[in-house]
């Protein structure tokens, strides 16, 4: 990859990021991470309170890329066929005709994923992992660019089916956008007096360009030393006392890919240890299962990962 190439990748990121920021205020970091996950080919789980702009964020992203966007509101009575699609008999032609579900899209927003029954959840999660779905006997490939943003609401627990930790592993990272600062919220108010800025947003990157960006991420160089560093961090989660289930090799891969994407966004064609440290908590924490005692003593998985990073010597 020559000099021009990763400059181009940086340019694409900048365009996207600026475009989304027109709609979402004060979430620069979150946008960077979402794009990193997206460019790295992973899916993202947003866990935050209602009304913090999760859906808007996903919409803005979809609109910016000139890509197909669908949204599923998860409810307890949602069935797998509501997501994947269903074959219906066409009496005029006397054949079964497949009606593709919302999963056949580029960007899928799975709102409140923890409200659906486990059966429906796993239908989606399988589609995410395999990039293909099987309806009846046919196996259908999903779009080349397939990206899921799932949201989860942490405050309500009634009538929810929390995603098991093993399923959480399917998501490349879990993000918590959080509330914005006072000034930023004031800016949001004044902007939305007439109409929602999402209406004005225009696509700035073509689908082809984004696929190229994804390809470029895989071309970013990561040294053996840093690969070792990633594995050290992920390995440490498996041996840390108080953790029942550590992170999988899938976590190592996700960490490498997202760190590579971050490097590209920083206009570099190689990963530095800073990129790994920057994203490690978001990539690893949601995959860990803590033992009840640690949970009770107030240790969260994020703190555990932070501790692990602090206990490992970083290559410099």
């Amino acid at each position: 990859m020559d000099e021009l190439d990763h400059g181009w990748g940086y340019k694409i990121f900048k365009l996207l990021s600026d475009n989304i920021e027109k709609v979402i205020k004060g979430q620069k970091e979150c946008i960077r991470y979402i794009l990193a996950g997206f460019a790295g080919g992973g899916h993202i789980l947003l866990e935050d309170n209602p009304g913090t702009g999760k859906t808007t964020l996903a919409k803005a992203l979809a609109k910016s890329i000139d890509a197909d966007f669908k949204r599923i509101q998860f409810t307890p009575d949602l069935l797998p066929s509501d997501i994947l699609g269903v074959s219906i008999f066409d009496p005029s032609q006397r054949i079964f005709k497949l009606h593709k579900g919302p999963v056949f899209t580029n960007i899928l927003l799975a709102d409140e994923i923890n409200r659906a029954s486990p059966r429906t959840q796993s239908a989606l999660l399988e589609a995410m992992a395999e990039s293909q779905v099987s309806i009846d006997t046919k196996i259908l490939n999903l779009e080349n660019l397939f990206f899921v943003i799932a949201t989860q609401n942490p405050v309500e627990s009634r009538g929810t089916y929390p995603l098991p930790e093993a399923q959480m592993d399917r998501f490349a990272m879990q993000l918590q956008p959080g509330y914005v600062t006072r000034e930023e919220e004031v800016a949001v108010l004044s902007e939305q007096r007439q109409k929602h800025p999402i209406k004005t947003i225009k696509p700035c990157v073509s689908l082809e360009d984004f696929l190229k960006l994804q390809h470029m991420v895989s071309q970013v160089f990561i040294s053996k030393e840093l690969q070792g560093y990633i594995v050290d961090i992920v390995n440490a989660t498996r041996e840390k006392p108080g953790v029942i289930l550590g992170a999988s090799p899938r976590a190592s891969i996700a960490l490498m890919k997202t760190a590579s994407a971050l490097a590209l966004f920083d206009n570099l064609d190689f990963v530095t240890p800073d990129h790994i440290q920057e994203i490690a908590v978001s990539v690893i924490a949601h995959r860990l299962m803590l033992d009840p005692q640690s949970k009770f003593s107030g240790r969260s998985a994020r703190i555990v990962v932070e501790d692990i990073i602090k206990s490992i010597q970083v290559p410099v």
């Binding site: 530095t272 970083v314 410099v316």
Partner: peptide
């Protein structure tokens, strides 16, 4: 290399922690 700068600064009372990248 940068190690030399690290040495100088750490002698001046700004040692780097083992887990810290140079940037941090």
């Amino acid at each position: 290399s940068f190690f030399a700068i690290e040495n100088v600064l750490s002698k001046k009372g700004f040692p780097r922690r083992e887990y810290e990248t140079y940037f941090a």
